[in-house]
Design a protein around this nucleic acid. Structure first.
Lengths: 109, 109
DNA sequence: ACTTTTCATGTCATATTTGACATATTAAAG
DNA sequence: CTTTAATATGTCAAATATGACATGAAAAGT
């Protein structure tokens, strides 16, 4: 429910930086969403870096183009597990995923 | 299928360090399992550090004792999403999760 | 322009994950 | 040793994630 609310805000043009979320989210919920968005962003970034299409990536991990699109859109109907699998198949290592999570600015400050 | 196979080995006493896995796993599959095991280990470690029972943790995240046990056992029937939620509620930050993934020795060498 | 490729979004049947529950095993305390 | 608390393990119906598919919108190419 909260996830949908957030997405709606983005759709309305809020252009949230990392997670400028207020409105009834516990710190844990905020961090959780933050992690998911970080990872989904990297999927998109790395896929484009390799100049792969969503369809190519989908086939490599046995998924579908539409699901990759949903991952990259931060859709709540996708699991961290699948996102991580995607990253690994895009040549991102566990260590690099670690760095991603470590080197992120504080949400609001 | 592969996940079960691995667990069987552990049960038989192999006491795998981080992921001493050979036997038909792609590097991506290996890394994926490695990540899951790292995270599940930290859940157990941190919970014990705080001297929480599995039941306490379960209630905090709206889950059940048996599911926490499965998470800590590295059971394949648990999602990274739930593991991450557990970590966050145990006071582990996104940055600390990042460090965890970054600072792990190579599986086999 | 238009043709083609890529991406976005919705739906849906199937697959997987879920909390709850029962119960067994182990550990701690008395 | 006995009792009690904590953890492990299995099962199962309900909830959620999934790939496949359709179709629309945008981008890229010609």
């Amino acid at each position: 429910m909260d996830k949908k609310k957030r997405k709606k805000l983005e759709d309305k043009g809020f252009t949230i930086g990392s997670t400028t979320d207020f409105l009834g989210l516990t710190p844990e919920e905020e961090a959780y969403i933050d992690i998911r968005l970080d990872i989904s962003s990297l999927v998109k970034k790395q896929r484009k870096k390799l100049k792969w299409t969503q369809d190519q990536l989908a086939k490599v991990i046995g998924s579908s183009q539409s699901r990759i699109a949903k991952i990259e859109a931060g859709d709540p109907s996708t699991s961290l597990d699948l996102m991580i699998k995607a990253l690994l198949h895009l040549g991102i290592s566990k260590q690099e995923i670690g760095k991603l999570l470590e080197n992120t600015l504080e949400p609001v400050l």
